[in-house]
Write a protein that binds this DNA or RNA. Structure first.
Lengths: 197, 197
DNA sequence: CTGTCTCTCAATCAATTGATTGATGGAAAC
DNA sequence: GTTTCCATCAATCAATTGATTGAGAGACAG
C-alpha cells in the first residue's frame, strides 16, 4: 500500500462529517447541505473546498484509506506466532466493530459504489486487496510452521476469514459472544487438530 | 418461510424493471421515470400501480423473496448426504452468480437499506435467517453423521459458509476457478480429516 | 346506447438539491 | 496604505424528481 496524501484541516472535518452522515443515512441520503451544516459552514464554503459531490466522495474514500493504513501500521506483530497474529486480527476487528463501526459501514457503502465508479474503486480496491494478501500471508506462515492444515489454500482461506468477519459485522454487531464463536470456528477450521482417539 | 403474496402482471413487470435498474445503477440511481420507461408505460401509470417509491421498493423486496423461495423449493435433497447437499448449495450459488447475478446484487442493496427501513427489513431478514438456519441444519446433520468435525459450531460455521460465498460473489464473479477453490476450502474446513499418523 | 370500471397518458406541480454568484472580512504580501 | 489571496456567507439558479390532476380509450354489463 502506497501512502495516499493525508487529509487535514477543513477537508478532514468535511470528510468526517460526510462519513458520519453516510453511516447514519446511507449513501443515497447524503446531502451536501447536511454535511455543511454538521461542519458548521455554509454550503457555498463546502463547495469552495470540494468542488463537486463526486470529489467529496473521493475525499471520503481517501480519508478512510488513511485510517485503514494507520490502524494497520499500528499493530506490532514481531515475534508473534501465526495463531497469535490471527487472534490479534480478530481482536482488532472486534474493537473497531464496537468502537468505530462507522468505519466498516462507510467501507461497505463505498465498496458498493466502487462497482460503478472507477475513482472510488481506485481508493477502495487496494485496501481490500491488502487485507486479503496480509491474511493469506499469515495463513501461509501458519501452514509452513505446521500449526495450520497442510492442505490449506491460503488465498481461499483468506477469503473465508474475511468473509466470515464481514458477515459477522452485519449479523452479530449486537452479539459479541456470537462474534467470538465465529472467530473460534475460523481457528478450528484452519488449525491442525489432534488425531481422533 | 411463509409464502408471500406472488407478484404478477404489470406489478411483476415493474418489479423486474426496478431490479434491473437497481443492479445497474444502484439504489441511489433508481428513478421512477426510468422504471416507467423500461416497462414502456407513463410515469403516472407507474404511480397508479405503485403509489409511492417506498411501496415500489417493498414490491421489489417481495419479488426477490418469491424468487428466493422458488429456487429454494426447487432443490430436491432427499436421500443426499450432508456433503452432497452442501455441494449442491455451492453449485446453486455458483449458477445464480453467473446466470442471474442481479438477484444477489439487488439482495445486497436491499440488505443495506434494511438497516434503516423497517418495511424492507421485514422482507429481507427472513430470507437471510432462513439461509443461515438451513445451512446450520446441514452442518448439524453432517456433524452427527461423523463426516463433519465433532467440535463444529453449526451456527458459527453457517455464518462462515455464507460469508465466504457472499464475499466470493463480489471478489470472484469473474474468476469461477477461484470460487471453486473457496468452496473446496470450506469443505476441508468442515470435514473430518484423516488423522496425521 | 349508457354507465362504469380499469388502465393509460400529457401536462404540471412542488419540493429537493447540487452548484453558482457576487460580496465581505481578515490576514499576509508588497 | 494598498494590494492580493484565502475563506466565508446570503441569496439564487437550474435541473432533477416524486407525485398529482384531469382527461380519454377500451372492455364489458345492463
Amino acid at each position: 500500500m502506497s501512502a495516499p496524501k493525508p487529509i487535514e484541516g477543513r477537508l478532514a472535518e468535511i470528510a468526517m462529517a460526510a462519513r458520519e452522515l453516510i453511516a447514519e443515512r446511507g449513501f443515497e441520503g447524503l446531502r451536501t447541505r447536511d454535511i455543511a451544516a454538521r461542519v458548521g459552514i455554509n454550503v457555498a464554503t463546502l463547495h469552495y473546498h470540494v468542488p463537486t459531490k463526486e470529489a467529496l466522495i473521493r475525499i471520503v474514500a481517501q480519508s478512510l484509506r488513511s485510517d485503514f493504513i494507520a490502524q494497520s501500521q499500528a499493530r506490532p506483530r514481531q515475534g508473534l506466532s501465526p495463531v497469535e497474529v490471527l487472534k490479534l486480527e480478530f481482536a482488532d476487528f472486534r474493537e473497531t466493530m464496537t468502537e468505530a463501526p462507522e468505519r466498516y459501514i462507510v467501507m461497505a457503502e463505498l465498496s458498493d459504489r466502487a462497482e460503478r465508479d472507477a475513482a472510488i474503486a481506485a481508493e477502495i480496491r487496494p485496501m481490500q486487496a491488502y487485507w486479503r494478501r496480509m491474511t493469506a500471508d499469515i495463513i501461509v506462515e501458519g501452514r509452513d510452521k505446521g500449526v495450520f492444515r497442510a492442505d490449506v489454500d491460503p488465498e481461499a482461506a483468506a477469503m473465508m476469514v474475511i468473509g466470515t468477519l464481514s458477515m459477522s459485522f452485519w449479523h452479530a454487531r449486537d452479539d459479541l459472544e456470537f462474534f467470538d464463536r465465529a472467530c473460534a470456528e475460523l481457528l478450528r477450521a484452519l488449525m491442525v487438530r489432534p488425531s481422533k482417539d
